[in-house]
Computed example of a mutant assay.
Amino acid sequence: MKKVLVVDDSAFMRKLISEFLTSTKQLEVIGIARNGEDAIAKIKRLRPDVVTLDVEMPKMNGIDALRRIMEECPVPVVMLSSTTIEGADETVKAMELGAVDFVAKPSGTISLDLHKIQDEMVEKVVAASKVNVAKITRGFQRESANDAGIGSVERTEKLPVDRTWGVNSPKMILIGTSTGGPRALQNVLTGLPRQLDAPIVVVQHMPPGFTRSLANRLDGQASIHVKEAEHGEILENGTAYIAPGGVHTKVVETGGQLSIQLSKEEPKNGHRPSVDILFESASLIRNYAKIAVVLTGMGADGSDGLVKLKEQGEVKAIAESRETCIVFGMPKSAIATELVDRVEHIGDIPRSIMTYMV
């Protein structure tokens, strides 16, 4: 049974969250804390396997507490966030600082309807409790960089280039990720050169209200332009489009140009946006070569779509390695299809993508 510390400034919320988590036989709440300072002292004393941490707290807020937790007593953390713009911005920052995942409260700081997300909270806390803390604290900074701004965390050998692949075809890059994705995306997108001769479309599992904050933050860090995808917009090379939370994102071809199509179809395997839906839409576009990338995440989203992609047209697939994944579910499932061309550590993925941009 995994041990949990619940951190929230509201006694009502601490009680409710504790009840939800102890309703499963997999989790035991071993302590509660009312602010960041209290949390740090109790983490050091109680040694929990996982912590739930409210973003908005007095005295020391969740972001400041998380920063100190990662420095002084690293442990997997799941953030609880409001869906305000400020809350979304702070949550994205928390993912960057090492939080494993987050749960969006349905209605403000004191959520009387928290039961709506009980199952999601339990699932994410259980998943976070199994994460190797070394993967959270490991520096994801690339150690070296070449002229294109692409480097490697752990390997420096030159990757082979497939000269017969996609020689005369325009390219598109498709990325799917979930748990641990914001940090992985930061690593990949900041490693790509400004003059990238392809558009990128990204599905990151997130609820509505958070993907714009993610896109804005990544845009400020990467050489390429990063934005939240909008319905009907024409895709441009050197731009990454983040699928908006709560809607499916497809790539369609109209009059020789690629554009974004957003839809509110039913979730696929529990996800909206869905990586499978993105990959399947791209499989229908004949005259483009596709580079499909599956990064860290729970579940198997993207595997069925990868099969569809590979059935039709020129496709190269890259999966993140077990060694650097926060959660190895999605890449493991993609690799199991036996259709993945390369399995790479996260820091090597930008360079791996560029070997296919010939």
Rank of each mutant, 00 (worst) to 15 (best):
V7I: 12
V7L: 12
D8L: 03
D9S: 06
D9E: 07
D9P: 04
D9N: 08
D9L: 05
S10R: 13
S10K: 13
A11Q: 13
A11R: 14
M13I: 06
R14E: 03
K15W: 05
L16M: 13
S18D: 01
E19T: 11
T22I: 05
S23T: 09
T24Y: 03
K25E: 15
K25H: 14
L27D: 01
E28G: 09
V29K: 03
A33Y: 00
R34C: 14
G36D: 05
E37H: 15
D38C: 12
D38L: 10
A39Q: 00
A39K: 00
A41T: 12
A41L: 12
K42D: 05
K42V: 00
I43F: 01
I43Y: 00
K44V: 09
L46I: 05
R47C: 14
P48L: 06
D49V: 05
D49P: 03
D49F: 03
V51I: 06
L53P: 06
D54C: 07
D54Q: 04
V55G: 05
V55P: 04
E56D: 15
P58D: 08
P58R: 09
M60R: 10
N61A: 08
N61D: 14
N61W: 03
N61S: 08
G62V: 02
G62S: 08
I63L: 10
L66K: 01
R67N: 14
I69L: 07
C73K: 07
C73M: 09
P74H: 06
V77T: 05
V77A: 04
V78D: 02
V78W: 04
M79D: 08
L80R: 04
L80W: 00
S82L: 09
S82V: 12
T83R: 12
T84V: 06
T84S: 13
T84G: 03
T84D: 04
I85M: 13
E86A: 14
E86V: 10
E86P: 10
G87N: 01
A88D: 00
D89T: 12
T91F: 01
T91W: 00
V92Q: 07
V92C: 07
K93V: 07
E96M: 11
L97M: 14
L97R: 10
L97S: 10
A99L: 06
V100D: 00
D101H: 10
D101T: 09
F102N: 11
F102M: 14
A104T: 02
A104W: 01
A104Y: 00
K105D: 02
P106Q: 07
S107I: 11
S107H: 15
S107D: 14
G108A: 09
T109M: 15
T109V: 13
T109Q: 14
S111N: 11
L112S: 15
D113F: 11
L114D: 01
Q118V: 10
E120D: 15
M121L: 15
V122L: 10
E123C: 11
V125Y: 04
A127T: 12
A128R: 01
S129T: 09
K130W: 06
K130S: 13
V131N: 07
V131L: 10
V133F: 07
A134Y: 10
R138L: 11
R138I: 07
G139M: 08
Q141H: 13
R142L: 11
E143G: 15
